[in-house]
């Protein structure tokens, strides 16, 4: 395979929506290179702006997460111009690929990690199960490309809502236990007052979608009842 920014690529691990992730040879060891790809659907000036901003933002966010006690791959190098981040390789399985049972056992760990990140003054911004790696008994958060700093209930609730929404889609039958595990750990880490405020906002965010009947009291909230013909 080709060289990427001077390093020999071993294989492509993942082609995501906005980036390609390669396993590279780093002085005889394994490392991971994340390259933000140019998108032809965006005009070049907008495309370059978004890619380099997100690269720098992601690297900063990863470092900040480490300081909050959240496990993330160790940061090795960053290129603004190349829109690339070089980081340590984490051996494990993506949370999106585990069974409902494993997800249930891991839900506490997820709640704890997200809460630690939030307490440290940041939000992940894309907290879907695909962006979590289960490595042994440790949970690593990856892809901080949409991460932001802030302490607001709103930002935190968006994180929580994203995880729970995708958990429901992926593990519908185990969802209630996953949600309970997540909630316990999140509230435990954040403290009841702040944690409950976030969970309350999560239900409000769900009501914000288009045409949610609960939002309007005077609406006709009854289900459409069909008759057999």
């Amino acid at each position: 395979m080709d060289k990427i920014l001077g390093l020999r690529a071993i294989c492509r691990l993942f082609l995501g929506a906005e980036a390609a992730v390669y396993l590279v040879d780093f002085f005889g060891g394994k490392a991971v290179m994340k390259l933000r790809l140019a998108k032809t659907y965006r005009v070049p000036e907008l495309d370059h702006k978004i890619r380099s901003l997100r690269t720098v933002n992601e690297a900063r966010a990863m470092w900040r997460a480490t300081q909050s006690g959240v496990k993330v791959p160790a940061l090795l190098a960053v290129s603004r111009k190349g829109a690339a981040i070089l980081m340590a390789y984490v051996d494990g399985v993506k949370l999106s690929n585990v069974t409902g049972d494993v997800a249930e056992q891991t839900s506490q760990l997820v709640g704890e990690s997200i809460a630690k990140l939030h307490l440290g003054g940041a939000v992940h911004g894309d907290s879907v199960p695909t962006n979590m790696i289960l490595s042994g008994r440790e949970l690593f958060l990856i892809d901080f490309g949409l991460s932001e700093s802030g302490y607001s209930v709103e930002q935190r609730a968006v994180d929580v809502n994203l995880f729970l929404r995708f958990a429901k889609l992926a593990w519908e039958t185990s969802y209630s236990k996953i949600e309970a595990g997540f909630r316990d750990a999140y509230l435990g880490e954040m403290g009841n007052t702040d944690g409950s405020r976030v969970m309350q906002r999560v239900s409000e965010i769900r009501l914000r979608g288009r045409y949610v009947p609960e939002r309007k009291l005077h609406d006709n909230n009854t289900e459409v009842t069909y008759v057999e013909s």
Partner: peptide, 9 residues
């Protein structure tokens, strides 16, 4: 029972 549903997700 064919009521209109202005909000219907």
């Amino acid at each position: 029972s064919s009521l209109v549903k202005p909000r219907w997700r």
